[in-house]
Design a protein around this nucleic acid. Structure first.
Length: 831
RNA sequence: GCGGACGUGGCGGAAUGGUAGACGCAACGGACUUAAAAUCCGUUGGGCUAAAAGCCCGUGAGGGUUCGAGUCCCUCCGUCCGCACCA
């Protein structure tokens, strides 16, 4: 099988990690070098709710100092960490292929802008709820952005989720919600000519509830809707309102506490089903320009936001969907909108009669009616599927990233860098002394000749989002030696998709969705011919640890404290000074909370095998592992025990030739070994490593007992069985504790490496018992056991059960109402 | 607000609708030792009981389906996660 463990930012990562490891003498358990050294700003900002600027420059200074102390220069770090020219060459080529295929666009976009760092924030950074998006630090700007047209694949990405049957439902659901498909209707409302600012004739809205058109009370448009802008030009109060919305709109607190605010523009819209029905057009702060058309019609009775709005502005509501069991004469909506199913009412005029229909039928009726009604050669209403998923903005105003291979020429416009000139490399001599993009500030780097006309031109100074790097590395891995192309399609198609991808849940949406898009884009451009990148996905938990904090609020490392007492009496103090320390919640290991355990310390104290064993044994892999000292010590003791046990086995184990017959003792050992083998094999395949560990403990306990009961020299059959058991035991734990296993394998007299040995074969006959013991229930409660032959008939079992004392006593001479025999499982007597 | 997951001993956790608590940690008792550590043996959900046998109660709370429910269904409580003014 092919397994990708973890998510590596790019192909140079191994090199970065390896070189740091060597340079620092530091064991790196997780390939996080890129985040830690390449992108301190992003990383720190996400982890610590700290403004990135502070971290960027301080961190780079700190990093520089650290590197100097190691005899290395910042230039060296940059060389390693920023860009593998080979990888970026192919990435740039692919970017240009995507461009040619219409998968890339340059959009004049409203972006979230960090005014202090002068950096565009990625979409996800603003909306993902982590840390630093406080209103004071984010403003909206209009800017050119390079985007990948992932929204072209919205439907396909959504539909194909059903084919990913080895992905967790949770991740599929998260992606489904992220794509956010909704079916509705685009409706063109005429505007009352006497009320419009500049002769505008109509307003197009998107709705998923055209069935509730008769409940309409108002229209609302986004503060940055063109109609709002036009109206504001002639209405200073409206302009002030819009300004206020924009100011508040970017702050998350404002959205959380969201008060619905609106401003009547004075414009009136004409109801599409009744030319005499005029609706006021408001500018409202809860309408998003990004979604639909940036305009809605409000039906307060059946939409909570609209209801909140009308209740504030006194516009009233008319219910048009009657909930089941309600009386149309008395049903009213006051504070809670009704968005459920029901029967249409209050929905009839000369044009159409919806009364009595289901909302779905009414939806279709209106959709068909408005599709058939035309104005100016276009239908008034048109079915439309909308997606929440937006195109992927990849432009970053940062140094750390793959340069976008584009040249801007005043005469020729946007010109791709010719293939022969790839890769576009980052300059080495950049300064980080000022905020903003060092590439843009660089004196010479961006000035180039236009490849098309030869005139003066400028390089694109944006670099790519590093998610681009991670979106196709798995394909590159299939043939990293191909110098000419990003992939060797034959090779990639043979290897991919990845059978089992293992990563953290934090990548559930972005990384995994981007990779799925990239796979499609690479298929379209001929780099791959597969549909999905990852056939199986497993999301593993994190290692977490208690946090410790001083009165002053400073966090303290676990290594610096001493813990006394137990349970509620547990108290911690600073080892050095005795100052009391508060024991806090268990959280993801992070540098900011200092609840990390240094891998060096673990390895020095217990060895890597113990660390691995503990992490596997403690919790199911999808759950977080709580790192505890006691738990690790327990694992360590077991390592010692295994070592002794294997030594004992090697002393008593016997001949290499298999005896023809096995006595009872030998058979018992063999059964234990093969049962453990069968169980571990099964659980490894299902990634249930904590159960594997339990089976190995059980087997080791059984083997110890068997050896303990050998008084003198064992007979040849037992000796052979012990030898077999030892061999199986070592191979069972070899994947989990490879170093120990190799040592043990040698002790058992093998010349080979256990790593190269085949997995042992189960002898099925040893898993079958001749007699089975069934629990006996009386009225569903366990009262006794019965031991019968494995192939006993149901009648024989019933007879045996009815003969039991406990059953006799319970029946008290009566015959049972019913006896349920579940073969190989249980017997239940219903008295 | 919407969506999802989860809730089992002192702790981490086992349990295709079929003996609840596998296995481990911690704790307690014992053996070994001058002693400690390590190691080995044993006990360990609660209650009734001197003890054993036996019985009763126990998987967040309440109800339901079933011969049988930790597991399935309904209501509620709690915790965690994701999305969040998406029309």
């Amino acid at each position: 099988g092919r397994i990708h463990m973890g998510h590596v930012r790019n192909y140079t990562m191994g090199d970065v990690v390896a070189r740091f490891k060597r340079a620092m003498g530091h064991a790196v358990l997780h390939p996080m070098g890129w985040d830690a050294f390449g992108m301190p700003a992003e990383n720190a900002a996400m982890a610590g709710k700290v403004h990135p600027k502070k971290w960027t420059y301080e961190n780079i200074a700190a990093m520089k100092k650290q590197l100097q102390s190691m005899g290395l220069s910042l230039d060296w770090a940059r060389e390693v960490a920023t860009c593998d020219p080979a990888y970026y060459k192919h990435q740039q080529k692919m970017f240009l292929d995507f461009l040619k295929a219409g998968l890339v666009a340059r959009e004049y976009r409203k972006v979230n802008w960090d005014p202090v760092d002068m950096t565009v924030l990625a979409n996800e950074q603003v909306i993902d709820g982590r840390g630093w998006r406080s209103g004071a630090l984010v403003e909206q700007r209009d800017l050119y952005q390079w985007v990948f047209k992932i929204s072209d694949y919205a439907e396909e990405l959504l539909e194909a989720l059903d084919t990913l049957d080895r992905w967790p439902d949770k991740v599929r659901l998260m992606q489904k919600n992220w794509i956010g498909r909704s079916e509705g209707l685009l409706v063109r409302f005429m505007l009352d000519a006497a009320t419009v600012p500049n002769g505008e004739s109509e307003l197009e809205i998107f709705t998923t509830r055209p069935d509730t058109l008769f409940g309409a009370k108002f229209m609302a448009i986004a503060p940055d809707h063109p109609l709002a802008t036009a109206a504001a030009a002639k209405n200073p109060k409206l302009a002030a309102f819009i300004e206020e919305c924009k100011r508040i709109g970017t702050s998350q607190e404002a959205i959380d506490t969201a008060e619905k605010m609106g401003f009547d523009t004075g414009i009136r819209a004409v109801h599409p089903l009744d030319a005499n029905w005029k609706l006021p057009v408001y500018v409202a702060n809860f309408i998003l320009m990004d979604y639909g058309t940036g305009a809605i019609f409000g039906c307060p009775a059946h939409d909570q936001r609209d209801l909140d709005f009308v209740n504030k502005y006194g516009l009233g509501n008319t219910p048009v969907v009657l909930p089941p069991g309600q009386d149309p004469k008395t049903f009213v909506v006051t504070d809670v909108a009704y968005d459920g199913d029901g029967t249409m009412f209050n929905s009839k005029n000369d044009v159409v009669d919806l009364n009595g229909m289901t909302p779905q039928k009414a939806f279709d009726t209106i959709a068909n009616l408005l599709a058939a009604t035309t104005r100016g050669n276009r239908p008034v209403g048109q079915r439309q599927v909308n997606y929440r998923l937006r195109d992927w903005g990849i432009s970053r105003q940062r140094y750390w990233g793959c340069p976008i291979p584009i040249i801007h020429c005043d005469a020729c416009g946007v010109v791709p860098v010719p293939a022969a000139d790839l890769p576009v490399k980052l300059p080495d001599d950049v300064t980080f002394d000022k905020p903003g993009n060092p590439l843009d500030r660089h004196p010479t780097w961006k000035h180039v000749k236009c490849p098309s006309c030869g005139g003066e031109a400028r390089r694109e100074t944006d670099t790519m989002d590093t998610f681009v790097d991670s979106s196709w590395y798995f394909a590159r891995f299939t043939d990293p030696w191909d110098a000419d192309a990003p992939t060797t399609p034959d090779v990639a198609n043979r290897w991919l998709p990845v059978d089992q991808y293992i990563g953290g849940i934090e990548h559930a949406i972005l990384h995994l969705l981007y990779s799925r898009f990239f796979t499609r884009a690479m298929k379209k451009t001929g780099h791959l011919n597969i549909d999905e990148p990852f056939a199986g996905l497993f999301t593993q938990g994190m290692v977490v640890h208690e946090t410790y904090r001083l009165k002053s609020g400073d966090w303290v490392m676990p290594a610096d404290i001493t813990i006394e007492g137990m349970g509620d009496q547990r108290r911690a103090k600073l080892t050095a000074t005795g100052e009391p320390v508060e024991i806090g919640s268990i959280e993801k290991m992070s540098k900011s909370k200092k609840n990390t355990v240094d891998p060096d310390d673990i390895i020095a104290a217990y060895g890597a095998d113990t660390a691995r064993w503990f992490m596997l044994s403690d919790s199911p892999p999808e759950r977080d592992v709580i790192w505890t000292e006691e738990g690790v010590q327990g694992a360590w003791r077991f390592v010692q025990r295994l070592w002794r046990l294997v030594g004992e086995v090697s002393e008593v184990s016997g001949p290499a030739t298999r005896p023809a017959e096995f006595g009872a003792e030998a058979l018992k050992v063999r059964k234990a070994a093969h049962r453990a083998l069968a169980n571990v094999s099964d659980d490894i395949a299902r990634l249930r490593f904590n159960r594997c560990v339990a089976h190995i403990y059980e087997f080791a306990n059984a083997l110890s007992e068997a050896i303990g009961s050998v008084e003198t020299a064992p007979g040849p059959d037992l000796a052979w069985a012990l030898r077999e058991a030892g061999d199986i035991l070592v191979r069972l734990f070899a994947p989990m504790m490879p170093h120990l296993a190799e040592e043990c394998w040698a002790v058992l007299g093998h010349d080979s490496l256990v790593a190269t040995e085949a997995w042992p074969e189960v002898e099925p006959a040893l898993l079958i018992e001749n007699t089975i013991t069934l629990p006996v229930q009386i009225n569903g409660k366990k009262r006794a056991d019965v031991t019968v032959a494995r192939d006993a008939t149901e009648d024989e079992i019933v007879a045996a059960v009815l003969a039991l004392d406990a059953v006799q006593k319970a029946l008290d001479g009566k015959s049972p109402k019913k006896v349920i025999v579940v073969p190989q499982r249980i017997v239940n007597v219903v008295a």
